[in-house]
Structures are given as C-alpha cells and as structure tokens.
Design a protein around this nucleic acid. Sequence first.
DNA 1: TTGTAGGCGTTATCAC
DNA 2: GTGATAACGCCTACAA
Lengths: 347, 347
Amino acid sequence: MTPEPYTADRQSPVRRPASIKDVAAAAGVSPTTVSHVLSGNRPVSEETAARVRGVVNRLGYVPASLARSLQAGSTSVIGLLIPDISNTFFAELAKGAEDAAHDLGYGLILCNTEFDADREDRYLGMIRSRFIDGMVYASGSPPSRRRLEALMGKFPIALADEEVEGLEGALIATADHEAGGRLVGEHLRALGHRRALMLTGPRALMSGTARANGFVRAFQGEVVERVGDFKEASGYRLVAKLLEKGGLDCTAVFAANDLMAFGALTALREAGLSVPEDISVVGFDDIRAASLAHPPLTTVHQPAYDVGRTATAQLLQYVSRGEVPPASRHTLPVELKVRGSTAPADR
Amino acid sequence: MTPEPYTADRQSPVRRPASIKDVAAAAGVSPTTVSHVLSGNRPVSEETAARVRGVVNRLGYVPASLARSLQAGSTSVIGLLIPDISNTFFAELAKGAEDAAHDLGYGLILCNTEFDADREDRYLGMIRSRFIDGMVYASGSPPSRRRLEALMGKFPIALADEEVEGLEGALIATADHEAGGRLVGEHLRALGHRRALMLTGPRALMSGTARANGFVRAFQGEVVERVGDFKEASGYRLVAKLLEKGGLDCTAVFAANDLMAFGALTALREAGLSVPEDISVVGFDDIRAASLAHPPLTTVHQPAYDVGRTATAQLLQYVSRGEVPPASRHTLPVELKVRGSTAPADR
DNA sequence: TTGTAGGCGTTATCAC
DNA sequence: GTGATAACGCCTACAA
C-alpha cells in the first residue's frame, strides 16, 4: 500500500473509502466538527454544517462502523444461534427475534449451525471476540453444553425455547413443553390408545425431557422410547427399523417435532400402513407444512415468534445497559391442534 | 469509567475484557510478542511462548475482532440478503452460501428483509459502513433497484437467483428460469390445456419475466396473468378474487413459486374445486412442502443450494483479493417434477 | 529473539 | 462554535 490514498483508480482494486479526515480536509474543518455535524452531539453553525454535508455527499462518506464500535465498546448487533434454518419453526422464531432487535435499534445476525459443533463454535467465537454484543441461543446440540456454561456469566446470552441440562442461572424463554407433552398424552389416552412409540430428540435437551415427562404422566399407558435428532431422516429411520424388526406394536406415535413426524409418516406409508386408520401420529411445533401434509398433522402449536421475541427483548434489556442478564424464566403457552393424523384406537 | 481496569467485580457490570496489553504485562513481555505468539507470524522462543499462552488461558484472553478488522481493513464476514426466511427455498440457498463462505474462512451473516425496504436498507448499510466485506443479494424487493445500482461497482455484491431489471455488469448466479417456464408450458400443453392462469411475482424481477417468457412461448395457448408478491396469501387472494367474479375460466394455474401455489390450492379447495380433476396447478422452486402437500405439487425444481453456493464462491473469489467482481453469469439447470397436482384437461 | 512506535477511523475530553 | 489530543485494541514495519 502506497501512502497516497487516491492514486489507484484503475478497475478492480477497491479504492480506499473516504474517512472522516478526508471529509474534514475537503471541508476545511477538523474531524471533530465533521463528527458532530453527523451525530448532532453538539451545535455546529449552519454554514459549516451545510458545507460539511456537501462534502460528505460528494465523497460518499459513510462512517466506518468498526472504528465507531471499537471506540464505543459495543457493536449494537446481536446473534441468534439456530440449529436448522430450513425448519420453519426456527424461521418464525427468528422473525420474532429480529423484530425485537430492530425495535431497540439492534441488528440481528442469524447463525445457522446445522447441528454442527464446529460451526456452533465459530459462531460463539463472535461473542467471545466481541464482534457481537450478545447471543440468543436457540440451538441444542448437546456437546455444546460445557462451552455454553463457560460463556454464560461472562457474556450476555439468553436461551430461547431450549434449556440445557444443568445450566442454571440463565435467562430463558421457552414454550411450555411439559404442558405440550401432557396435552398429547391426554389426547391419545382419550382416543383409547394404550401403547405408544415416543420419538425423542437428543437426551441432553430439557425441552425434550419436559415433553416426555408431561406425556408419560398423562398418557398412563405403555411408552416405547427411541432417541432421534430432530431431523426428518431420523424419524424415518427409527420407525423403519422397528417396522423391519416385526412391527411397531403400538397404536400411536408421538414425535419430538413435526419434521420427525413427517419422517415417521413416510416410513409408515411405505410399509403399507395408513394414518390414522392403522396408527395415529402426533408431532410438535406446528410448522406450516403440518397443516398442509396428508393427512394434516395433529401437533402441538408452539408460539415460535413470541419465544424468539421474548428471549431477545429480555436479553437486550440487559445488553443495552452493559450488564450480564440474571436468571429468569418466561414460559409461554402451547396449544394442541387436533387434525387428521389421530383417530380412535379401535381396530 | 475509572482508569483501573480490574476493580469492578460486583455482579452485573461486565468486567472489561483482557486486552493484549494486559496479557503482555502479566507475562512480562511486549504486546508485540503476545501478538506473534498467537499469530505465529514470527518465531518466538518456546519458553516465552509457553509463558504467554499460560497467561492467555488464565485471563481468558480473546483478541478483539473489531480492532483486528479495523487494522486489517476487512472483517472476513459477508452477508446474505434474503426476503423470506420461512420460505425453505431460501433456507436451502442459505446453506449453500454458508458452506461456500466457511470453506474460504469467511463468516456469513443472514439478513432477512421480509420484503421490507427499510429493513433491506439497514442491512445494505452494513456493507456501506464496511461491517461486512461483501453481500450476496438474493432478495427481490423491486424498490431496491436504485439503491442496489449505486452500491454495485463500489462494493462487492453478487446476485443470487435473481436479476434486477436494468442492472448489468453484475456477478450473477441463477437457475435457468426461462427453461423452467418452458418445461411447465410444454407439460401443460401436452396434457391438453389451452387456457392457463399465470400468477407472477413483482414485475421488476427478471426471474419472473424469464419464467413467463419461457412459459408463454412453449404453452402456445391463452394466458391470463395476475401479479402477486411471492407470498402464500397473495396466491390465495388472486385466485379467490377471480373465483368470486365468476370463475377462473382456465384449466390450469401456473404460480410464480410454490408458496403462491399453496395459496391457490387453498382457494380452489374452498371453492369446492378438486385438483387435479377440475384444474391443474403447478408451482416453482420445489420446496420441501411441495412433495408433502396434498395433492403433491407438480413444480420446477431449482438447485437452491447450488445457486447459493455458486454465487457466494464467485463473490469471495474477488472479495478475498480486495477486488470488485466483474460481470459474469452462471446459469444452473432446473428440472420439472411431475406430481399429483397436474392431469389431462379432459372433462 | 524481542521491543518501540505509528497508524487503522472514530468519538470523548479538554481547551480555546 | 471549533480544534487538538488521547484512547479504543490490534498489527506490523523498523530497530535493537
């Protein structure tokens, strides 16, 4: 780099953008004044201000946010960590988070991990290196727990829709998973089901445990459990494997989320079983495709948008004051959506 | 703020994070040495290095990315602008972009605009203020064109899956929209349809124009056109309104994307029409819900992941050299997925 | 093998 | 109403 700023003007090499000094020099004032014209932080004579604004426009000057943030000690940007961007449940959650952030003048960065620990690490690095001021954590890859633990307390983090086992003292906003499980249990029991297959998510997640507890308690029947990973493929695989080994021996399936329920649906269909005549299927989340599917999926509606919005608003309340958030919990109500995938167990 | 860094140790106020100076002082070396121990940019005696690393761990030192970026002149982060995060088409595109970015050591920020011009502006501001090194633009809100035009050429921007009318000299990666339209036209014609309703996206988008051109040319029948906005609700509204006014007078509907096709499906069902018996429906994109829906939707499969990946890889090729990308175009193949929502037009 | 000094672009403090 | 100066935290010539 030569010390002459405005020399290189060929094609490709990006010209060095104008800095506040360039503007000041061109306007015949000090950088201080330029800064104040732009921020309005102190009075500037109208004449000077007009001249400065002219130069700003002519040079296309835009303050470097990096320098500004470095000096301010914060970036006014937070992150939202989610495991699977193509699950529309998280998309809705993200919308809530985005709206809450924008309301308070913060930017929101969406961080998608694909359930990948390395990727999660990379994104968490953004908060450790203070590229972002805080993080809403809506992911749930189990191996991340220890890392999370080390981070919380040092950096502003809020948990959305998910709790991590053993992690306490956190700021948490979740749906009422236990109630959701209970609603499903009661529904299936009322339909006469007495033996159900439960497809869960990874063990370390409290949301899953809470759902399972609520379900088992209310169902009061036999429950076969299989552990999956929230992906459609795992719902398919678990059911297909049981089918191979001589049948499900159940009249109902309760999947940890709608995606896994879709996988189960496909496996059942391929095995020649009809839903809900031969077997009932229930999901969790109530994503858009649930009502579109055939048959329309009975599922538990989670207020995804509100969960995202609440977690983010809570977090920002502390971030904006430069404080680490205290423990606090917000539990949002859920609702059972009875659709076409469940029916009485009399055959 | 008192000048003593390590005093405040109460509860909430976040303690000032350790800086390179703190580490240097604690290890009895200069900041330069700490920097080099961490970067490996010049040899450091093993003894010193070990001591420094010890202090780094003890203090939990993480270099401030802002300061690093300010000095380096780039952040190694790029953005991806999309209009609708809950459309899984964009989710897939984002995955491709994310993979390409990570492969080259770049971070990717997902920017969701909800088709909102203000929000798009905010996010484009990140590139003007150099918070990010470049942007993959996969949005398509028409009013943004003038802004985009001003930005391209000054900042590294690539267009993914979308071209904006009149915007030339850009780096572009899209699916073959025209071929997609043609495939649909041929398919419907072969089924005996002669009069079709075409639900388009906003006019300013070239992708829609290309699809329409391909369709009209291959269909060789009468085409009624209605302009929508890519949202499910608009597909519903347009069809419902025509139905109210005395029927569609068409045997087939070609929607600009799957979401609008779903909306059309709902409106038709509510009017007591069956698909495909009474009327055929075709979408575009082939999102996950398309094959799940009832009936499964005939649609054009776009290689969303590859579009995102290609656009991003192309962009980064120039960003990493500090160059503004030249004009170039990559057109990716599409594929017609014939499913249950289309049938012969003989009734 | 290590240290000193300057600069990245801003804003806050202090002085006039 | 306006300016000089320092500081945010880092990297990297240049020097020893």
